[in-house]
Each structure stands twice: as C-alpha cells, then as structure tokens.
Amino acid sequence: MKYRFSRKHLAIPYALFLLVFVVLPLIVIVYYAFTGNDGKPTADNLLNFFGDPNTLGTLLYSFILALVTTCVCLLIAYPVAYALAFSGLKSKSVLVMLFIMPMWINFTLRLTALKEILTLIEGNLAFHPFLNSVVGMTYDFLPFMILPIYNQLDRLDKSLIEAATDLGADKVKCFTRITLPLSMPGVISGVAMVFLPAMTNYVVLDMLYNSTYIMGSLIGSYFSAYDWHGGSMISLILLALICIFTLLTRDNESSDVRGGSLI
C-alpha cells in the first residue's frame, strides 16, 4: 500500500514528542513521588513535606515572597502600562520595545548588573536578604506584568471614557468604573506570569546572597543530593499549586508574553 500524505499526519511527530518529553516525565514524577528508595509505594515523601516545619516554612516564605513581589510589580507596572497606553505619543511602538528589550538580555547577566548596584548602595547584600530578593525579582519579572496590562489598556475602547465624561463622571470615577475593570484580564495574566516564577526562581535569591530556601531551591537541593523521590514530591506539589492557580486565573484570553513576544 502506498503512503498518502495528508496534512494532519504532520501532527504525529509532535504528538509523540510531547508524549515522551512532556507527559511521560510528569508520570515518572508522580511515580517517584509516591515510592521510596526500595521502589515500594509509600506516602512518606508527602508526609515528610507536610510534617516538617522547615519545608512548610519554605512554602510559606515562597508564598510571601511571591505575594510581595507580585504586589510591587503590579504597583509599578500599572502606572507604566497606563502611561504607555494613554500618553498619545507617536513613537509608542519604540517605547513599548524599550520595555520589552530587557527580556531578551540574559536574566543572570541583568541580575549581575543589579547586584553590583545594590552592593554599591547597601554596602553588604547580607543585611537585607528579603528586600533584595523582592527587588531582584521585580527587576526580573516587571516586563511580564507591564505587557499584558498594556495590551489590555491599549485595546480599550477610548470612546467609553469620553462617554462617561460627557455623562458627568469625574476622572476618579472614570478610572474605577471603566478603565480598571476593563483592564482586569491583563492584570490577571500579569499576576499569573509573575507569581509562579516568583515562587520557584531561586537563582534570583542565590545571586543576591539570600540563603533562605524557596520552593524551587528545594528541588535544587534534592537534585544535588540525588534524592529523586523527595524532589519529585516537591515538583508534584508545585504542579498542584500551578494547576490551582491556572484554574483560578484562566477564562481570559491569556496574553502570553513569556519569551518576549515579538509582536
């Protein structure tokens, strides 16, 4: 029988690729998370995580760090996105480009630059580990918060604001009743793009000499100790958190900007 080419056959290699390198690794993680070194099924890894004040402390610390980072990012990104969308400048695309460009520079090199500046200001980075981590993460993730909010604000129908003004709404009311609610989808995808990396990107902490662990560092330490089972359990817990978070924040056309959207 002769093979007849059809366009949908092109999906087969990619489907197999996803199966082997995306689905299978996750199955392996679930298997390893619930087995011990002897290969027998056990819930020890799970109990170890939830029974140990240290690991629970790590979970809490990552949560607080991510929360503070997300709030700081939002507080900076919203005015910037607003200014970008409403400045009425002709060279808007150049300005937007300037805010995207940092995403193309290797993040470890950007952190190196930030570290030098912080060292100059503070003298010794060891005095303010939490503050430095928040600053580092904000510096790293800010474009991911600016872009989706800007996209949403830029798309906003400006005549709505004019209509509200004509009907007697003041500026504050215009913002709280029109601009802010209509930009919420952008805010939500921005929060999703910042919160999760802030819980896991331990390189920021490492590079700024914050020796406290976050969830990502736990995987790193299990990896260094060749403890596949412990590491898998942490991965699984992170996956569960990511799932919950994604379910909470979906239902809006995600303006995905990771990797630096090349509009």
């Binding site: 896991t200 990502g216 991965s235």
Partner: peptide
C-alpha cells in the same frame, strides 16, 4: 503544560525520565 509549568519542574522531570 510546558508553557505554564515552572521551568524547575520541566528541567527536573526531563532529567529524572
């Protein structure tokens, strides 16, 4: 999955497999 997953988990899971 890889788009929303944490890179740490992607890396670790591919490594373990």
């Amino acid at each position: 999955i890889p788009v929303i997953n944490a890179d740490v988990v992607t890396g670790f899971s591919v490594c373990i497999l």
